[in-house]
């Protein structure tokens, strides 16, 4: 097996789960998420020489995936009729747990994408504000404002009787 092939396989095994989950929260569909991951990793293979440092791999792959998602909209090839069914799948839970997690799942999906994306990067992928800013091509203050507003909206919607969304931000 060539060195490039070994390097690529290590990359695929390390990052496929995170890429798939990130793609799902980006496009709301499991089948489209899988296509996005396939397209992202095939493009990564073709451009593997561009990746110089292992620590840059996650941000590099996420950038490719976001470009592939943008290309998807340009091609207008996909349909969205299966979004609801995809997003509501939940397994092995009691009815009470299921209702609670369905609600949180819907609330995450209901967040504006500008707020959802940095939250997913921070909570799911463990990225710092600076790393998120690099991938999203934003400054750190904007990323922090979006994290603030995303959490505030979720908290307010989960506790409608509470004080509500903080106005500062």
């Amino acid at each position: 097996m060539s060195h490039a092939q070994q390097r690529y396989e290590a990359l695929v095994r390390a990052y496929t789960p995170d890429l798939y989950r990130y793609a799902y929260w980006l496009c709301h569909s499991k089948s489209i998420a899988e296509d996005l991951v396939q397209d992202t990793l095939l493009r990564a293979w073709k451009n593997l020489s561009q990746l110089q440092e292992a620590k840059a791999a996650k941000a590099w792959l996420l950038t490719i995936l976001r470009h592939e998602n943008a290309r998807r909209f340009e091609r207008k090839q996909f349909e969205y009729s299966d979004v609801e069914q995809d997003s509501l799948e939940d397994l092995h839970q009691s009815p009470e747990q299921s209702v609670a997690t369905d609600r949180l799942h819907r609330l995450i999906l209901g967040l504006p994408q500008d707020y959802r994306e940095p939250l997913v990067m921070q909570l799911l992928l463990g990225m710092t504000g600076d790393e998120i800013a690099t991938v999203l091509q934003l400054n750190l203050n904007t990323v922090n404002t979006r994290l603030f507003r995303g959490r505030a909206q979720l908290r307010a919607r989960l506790q409608p009787e509470a004080a509500g969304v903080p106005s500062h931000g």
């Binding site: 496929t16 789960p17 798939y20 990793l41 095939l42 949180l104 995450i108 799911l124």
Partner: peptide, 22 residues
């Protein structure tokens, strides 16, 4: 709670399918 919810199940064999296509 958000972390638990965000970590959706990954399709089995997805890594193998990616490598097969490559």
């Amino acid at each position: 709670n958000l972390r638990q919810q965000l970590a959706i199940e990954v399709p089995p064999q997805l890594v193998e399918r990616v490598l097969l296509n490559q």
